[in-house]
Design a protein around this nucleic acid. Structure first.
Lengths: 309, 309
DNA sequence: ATGCAAAATGACTATTGAGTCAATTATATT
DNA sequence: AATATAATTGACTCAATAGTCATTTTGCAT
């Protein structure tokens, strides 16, 4: 029995495998970030991990499979937290958006190598699966920005949304790049506020009629299709659906312990953010959640999603 | 005798060679843009041009030499015109900057494939010479932006210049990308004005104290070094030095024909912008300039620079 | 027409690196 | 301890491609 009153069970048998899989992902991401995708050989990655090439191929069926797994792994980690903040109905739109940018920049500090790799963009291009993945990522980002814009300014922003989305995204990307390359050091919260402020200033200039938009729906047809196809922000993964269900329930019930339950949920989100989340901690936190019968089912569902990775 | 009263001399003997060299550059740039640097083989380039691989290697000693030549060739073409507008002392700073962006976007439409290649960034990375070249290009761009900011707002902008430069550059890059990929169609003049307007809005927000900068000199030490080392905007190529000398002389003399002479100079600049400038036209225009004894020397110097390419 | 030099060719070499698989080693089970 | 099963290895194949060079073709002068 530990302090939380839980029996700590040994991590399941496949634990070792999962770890090695992650070690490979992390090693590969660092090498890709440093030398680029095509200039990093599978041999080098194997050596970096300390295993043989043959073993490497027992975890990932090809180099392409490896890079796609990297994207899937990290993208989930980075974006999930933004999504969760989006679920919080108590936060006013502007603070919410600031917080979401803040969280992204925190993520960047955690996953520097991944971001560096991503910014390089030089993944074995003209590859179908990879560019599909990149499409999907961009779709999510834009879907999120669009949501935020509408929440902030309502329908009247529609005519300017494309210009604002592209400009905001490019500013975001620039500061991300500066952080990742270590050129700039700054508090995530400060950058988050800064970006939202720029967006605000530009949006107001549009709304006051002092600026004319360049982009319009017709030009952006491709993007619209992408955003729709991905179902994008509303619900794009079972795991995030599970988060959403839990939050909805929490908000609806409005229990007296509600705020402490949210705190636990946030701590869970924090833990999953780590590159090596501790299973015991997660299990403990979920046990706490499940003590409340009203949300036990939802908690269980989320736990299954998270621990099954 | 043609309409300009000039004998048209046959294009010099190396003309054929020069053409083929340029055909190779253009073919290569298209293939690099389409499939990426490392996924395009020298064989494919040779086939694209309709020559053998051996011949290709008589023009460029290596693949690296080829990509560097591409950068040198196009960068000169794109940036030179921005520089020349910078020389025009009559234009107020804001209009000048708008015009410079406009000209860049015009250039982008001319050299789409090059820009696409450049945006991909996936040139044989960790290569010394290439990254040196990219450094130089970035240095020039930032040096130009810095100049423009100081002209527009004076010294009081200094504290915010880094944030403004990075944000402006990123917005510029975004619209460039949209143009290059054909997502957006827009008049270069409109985009130029648009970008300057965003810069203005953001700058005013800083100057009014409503926004705080994120970046400072200390963080940007590397950039400062780069910008200084390149001598950057002030004078970075013999050719541009020659332009500058000519313009200075023109402005100083203030001849009655001054404006028609400037028109001729601008027409020369237009012609050099083309992917296949006509030598005859250039020679004719220079002949017109040289009719004025006062600027004959400067014109001759510039002509030598331009025609020697 | 003849001979010569320059230009062009493409078969060839050498290297790199993705992916395979038979053989070996480690681990678990009885 | 013996056996079975799973995990790991690295030498090997095979394809791609940068760069070379002996041979052929072309263009030009006499």
């Amino acid at each position: 029995m530990n302090v939380l009153g839980l029996d700590i069970k040994p991590i399941n048998v496949r634990g070792a495998d999962m770890n090695k899989r992650e070690v490979i992902l992390e090693t590969a991401v660092e090498l890709f970030a440093e030398k680029g995708y095509s200039h990093t050989s599978m041999q080098e990655i194997a050596e970096g991990v300390g295993i043989s090439k043959g073993s490497l191929y027992s975890f990932f069926t090809s180099k392409e499979d490896l890079i796609i797994s990297i994207y899937e792994h990290y993208q989930q980690l980075v974006f999930e937290r933004v999504f969760i903040i989006g679920l919080d109905g108590d936060l006013p739109p502007r603070e919410k958006l600031e917080k979401q940018f803040e969280v992204q920049f925190e993520g960047i500090l955690h996953y520097k190598a991944y971001m560096k790799m991503h910014l390089r963009g030089e993944t074995g291009t003209n590859n179908k699966k990879i560019s599909a993945m990149e499409h999907r990522m961009r779709g999510r980002l834009f879907s999120w920005l669009q949501n935020s814009l509408l929440e902030l300014y309502g329908e009247e922003i529609t005519a300017y949304k494309w210009d604002l989305m592209f400009m905001t995204q490019s500013i975001y990307r620039t500061y991300m790049m500066l952080l990742v390359t270590g050129q700039a050091e700054a508090k995530p919260a400060a950058i988050g506020k800064h970006i939202v402020r720029q967006l605000e200033v530009m949006a107001n200039d549009f709304l006051n009629g002092n600026s004319q938009p360049i982009l319009n729906d017709e030009m952006m047809q491709d993007f619209i299709v992408d955003m729709d196809r991905e179902g994008a922000f509303v619900s794009f993964e079972k795991r995030e659906q599970a988060w959403k269900t839990l939050y909805n329930k929490l908000n609806k019930l409005d229990l007296p312990q509600s705020s402490s339950l949210k705190e636990i949920a946030n701590r869970i989100s924090e833990e999953t953010k780590k590159s090596r989340p501790e299973k015991v901690v997660l299990k403990g936190l979920f046990a706490l959640l499940k003590e409340n019968d009203e949300i036990a089912n939802e908690s269980k569902a989320l736990e299954d999603e998270i621990l099954s990775v």
